[in-house]
Amino acid sequence: MKRHLVSAADLSRDDALLVLDTAEELAQLSGRAVKKLPTLRGRTVVNLFFEDSTRTKTSFEVAEKRLSADVINFAAKGSSVSKGESLKDTALTLQAMGADAVVIRHHASGAPARLAQSDWLHGSVINAGDGTHEHPTQALLDAFTMRRHLNPGLGHDLAGRRVTIVGDVLHSRVARSNVLLLNTLGAEVTFVAPPTLLPIGIENWPCEVSYDLDSTLAKTDAVMMLRVQRERMNAAFFPTEREYSRRYGLNGTRMARLPEHAIVMHPGPMVRGMEITAEVADSPRCTVVEQVANGVSIRMAVLYLLLGGATLADAPRTEAPENAA
């Protein structure tokens, strides 16, 4: 694997499967009374969050702690960053503090790429979501969830599985990372959105595009509903919340069109009543809560592989004794 995880395109098929398989092994930990491994003891991981994100930050933090890393939370708000410190100076500071990995969430597309290419930092850079660009660990946890339901087993990919991603593709880093990773894993992706919420040039992306949700649901193994911000309405991306919901929202009637085995996914946070109804969100086909749990396993796997630099078989398998009491 590469030293950084900035884009889902950084992962070859073998890399992606290694992450999924490693996560599968690490997931077994969560069933134990003691959920901790000593693997990253003495390593420092910094969570550098320029944007509020309780869910992703918590997920990374849990993953880091389960691997016994020293965790530093460097929130841009309330730190020198909000007083105008540059990305470069922040990075140099973290480097001086000996960060082995930096998990970065930034509102500007490309900020993690900029860090990874710079000589400001020597540790690994893990993209935890940058602007409207990418969110590769989200794509990994989504693929992990899909594999468990649609093609379970170590070493398995998603060949031939049909994934429909619905909503604000234009502004979605989840959609961008997913289309890249799902292609790497052999799945077939269809984006469904009003034309205003699809980027120019999408016809050259490795996916199908449809403006009609109803016609695609019958040929779907997993449907992923993207969050649609109400404010988009004010920039005329769609006329009203209700119209969006009627044309592109997932309700019980639409869910019934899915094949029996198909799952409903959402990266969260959901806007109930907008892109998804409560009936669908609370149905057993909806994997939202499962995705959150899988997120921890995936992030553990990513940290483990980037920082440990070894396969899981080489790792010490004993549980941390200081936590045993």
Binding site: S109, G110, G131, T132, H133, R176, P199, I200, G201, N204
Partner: peptide
Amino acid sequence: QMNEGQVSGELGLGG
């Protein structure tokens, strides 16, 4: 942020 086209769509930069 950059020319609107194939590349801006992929990079997630305003066109």
